[in-house]
Computed example of a mutant assay.
Amino acid sequence: MRHEMGLYEVPFRSIEQRLKTVEIRLNDLKRQQVQVGDQIQFTHTETSETLLVQVTKRETFQDFQALYEHVSQESIDCVGWSIDELVTSTYTIYSPEAEQQYGTLALHIELLP
Rank of each mutant, 00 (worst) to 15 (best):
E4H: 14
I76E: 04
Y68V: 02
Q17S: 09
I15C: 04
Q35R: 13
E49M: 11
Q32G: 05
V22W: 11
T43K: 14
E97A: 15
T92Y: 02
Q17V: 00
T60W: 07
S14E: 10
E85G: 03
Y102Q: 00
V36K: 15
G103H: 11
L19W: 06
L86M: 10
E9G: 04
E4C: 04
C78H: 03
V55K: 04
S75T: 10
L26Q: 06
Y94K: 08
H3Y: 12
W81V: 01
W81K: 01
D77S: 13
S14I: 00
E9K: 09
T43A: 05
L26M: 11
Y68W: 10
K57Y: 13
Q17E: 15
Y102S: 09
T45Y: 10
Q41A: 00
P96K: 14
F12H: 05
V22D: 02
S95G: 07
L105Q: 13
M1V: 11
M5I: 12
E69K: 15
L67F: 02
L26T: 06
E110A: 10
V87S: 08
F42A: 02
S48T: 12
S72Y: 05
V55I: 11
F42C: 04
T21R: 14
V53N: 01
F12T: 04
V22N: 05
V22T: 07
T56A: 04
D38K: 01
F64M: 05
A66V: 00
L52G: 04
L112Y: 01
S75V: 03
R25C: 12
L51Y: 06
C78R: 05
Q65Y: 03
Y102L: 06
M5D: 08
I83L: 08
L51E: 07
Q17W: 11
Q101V: 08
T92H: 01
A66H: 14
T60K: 14
T88H: 07
E74V: 13
E49W: 08
E4D: 06
F42P: 01
Q39F: 14
F12K: 07
D63I: 05
V36L: 09
S95R: 03
V34G: 10
Q101E: 15
D77R: 03
E23G: 02
R18P: 00
Q35S: 15
V34K: 10
L111G: 03
I93Q: 09
G103M: 12
D28M: 10
K20I: 01
T60S: 14
E59S: 14
A106M: 09
